[in-house]
Amino acid sequence: MEWDWHYTGDILPDLLDGLRVTVTATLLGYVIAVLLGLVWTLLRRTPSAVVNQTVRWVTEFVRSTPLLVQLFFLYYVLPTWGITLGPLTAGVIGLGLHYSTYTAEVYRGGIDDVPRGQWEAAVALNLPRSRTWLDVILPQAIRRVVPTLGNYLIAMFKDSPLLLGINVAELLNTAYTTGTHTLRFLEPITLVGVLFVLVSVVSSVLVRRLERRSHATD
């Protein structure tokens, strides 16, 4: 079988539509992951041992079980409890929830890296707890972890094809459906691969540049 450039040109617009869904799902999921991760980290620092241990085991559980199964859970189990999510919504929530357990670790590392003196200074200045966190600790911690968080954005992008398991019309799913219509899988799936490598390589170059810049300002 020969590579058919004409066919390639025909399917490209459809694939780009799929890519748009992939990117949307990734970005929305990323927003959830970044915010929820911070929530997990802060909850783990509360004095209550019950909250602390619960959060610890919940995040450990989510982190060490497959994203695909979690997506199935959101998509198939929640409706039996009366919560019906559309495929894309379930996908975004699943991606976000799964990766929030990773970003939580990143934040934790970032907060641990803030020098002790900063805490002591906040105490010495008698800053209220909320100001200590919002104006002293978090700005420094988050600046340190931006490149690492960027890497997780790329990781999420690469995990987004899993959404086809719950019928989201993302990039790979579009390619596969196109293929079943024409029985030619070579061009669409190869194109998807090329698009993935392109987006990932370009974004990892950007993240590396970000990394270098944040080292330079340290």
Partner: peptide, 22 residues
């Protein structure tokens, strides 16, 4: 760079659906 940038599932589909055609 190539295989880190590639999604596992895309690779798997490529091996399973695309390569048999060639």
């Amino acid at each position: 760079e190539f295989f880190r940038g590639m999604a596992t599932l895309v690779l798997m589909y490529w091996f399973f659906y695309a390569l048999p055609l060639v």
